[in-house]
């Protein structure tokens, strides 16, 4: 049996044991997301505009995470609306960041790995990086939107603004930890490499791969930070709309 399949089966067992029906929902969401990401990659390689593919795949990913993880449809509705708004804003930030940073494609550190590959593939690496930047933030956007929407629902509609702000700040605080470690875990190899080669700081800051990675972290931080007030706002709008 392939290792990935075995890992999936073990995770299914764990999720079912700990989460019951909810756990099975989480597992289905993960499988769907895996499928969406593979299909998105194939479509991009097939010549479809990568940013368009990413936006469409992004909608599907957000819907999957939010609706399968949230039993309360009111909470899910608020979270989804806010997540879509956040995704739109984040796309703007990502486009500006990627275009101005020229971090698309590969860096010198990748050259060994690229031996034997044709790099003139006719697909814009800049568009691929915009797609990457957008998609990598979506998990964090969905998580923050669900957490805020669920927290607000628990607090009730008459809560003071201060309590809402406290809730939002707490969620941003923990999300920042998740992102900091998550990204560092994704690129520990690169950090160690740079440290062992004793690259000076200015060189690291301008390095294509490192700058690209750092910008990716900032995209996610900005995404989470924008999602929280947006979710509070959407929740209030929906509440007012419901009363009218």
């Amino acid at each position: 049996m392939s290792t990935i399949v075995a890992l999936l089966l073990v995770l299914l067992g764990l999720l079912a044991a700990v989460g019951g029906k909810q756990g099975l929902g989480d597992f289905v969401a993960l499988l769907l997301n895996m499928g969406i990401m593979i299909v998105a990659t194939v479509l991009m390689a097939g010549g479809f505009q990568p940013v368009v593919v990413a936006v469409v795949a992004g909608l599907a990913v957000l819907a999957t995470i939010i609706f399968l993880a949230t039993p309360d449809s009111d909470v899910a509705g608020t979270a989804f609306t806010a997540a879509l708004l956040a995704m739109g804003l984040v796309l703007l930030v990502v486009v500006v960041g990627v275009v101005l940073s020229h971090t698309a494609g590969f860096g010198q550190e990748d050259s060994e790995e690229l031996e034997g590959f044709s790099l003139t593939i006719g697909i814009s690496f800049q568009h691929l990086l915009i797609a990457t930047g957008l998609l990598s933030t979506l998990g964090a956007i969905a998580e923050a939107a669900v957490a805020v929407a669920a927290g607000l629902a628990e607090l009730g509609p008459t809560t003071a603004a201060d309590a809402r702000e406290r809730l939002g700040s707490a969620i941003i605080g923990t999300a920042l930890n998740t992102l900091f470690f998550g990204f560092f875990g994704g690129f520990a190899g690169l950090f160690i490499w740079f440290a062992q080669l004793h690259y000076p700081f200015w060189q690291i800051l301008n390095d294509q791969i490192f700058a690209g990675e750092l910008i990716q972290v900032f995209f996610s931080v900005i995404a989470v930070t924008l999602t929280v007030p947006l979710t509070i706002w959407v929740s209030q709008m929906r509440h007012q709309g419901g009363q009218a």
């Binding site: 999720l15 909810q22 989480d26 990086l129 998609l135 990598s136 933030t137 998990g139 969905a142 998550g182």
Partner: peptide, 30 residues
């Protein structure tokens, strides 16, 4: 715990998978 574990798994999944996009497309086009 049940209500937060699904989205948290998704956060890391999206970070780790999106990192592989550029290279995956390069592989497919090759």
């Amino acid at each position: 715990g049940r209500s937060v574990m699904g989205p948290l798994i998704a956060v890391l999944f999206m970070i780790f998978i999106a990192e592989t996009f550029t290279e995956s497309v390069l592989w497919l086009r090759n």
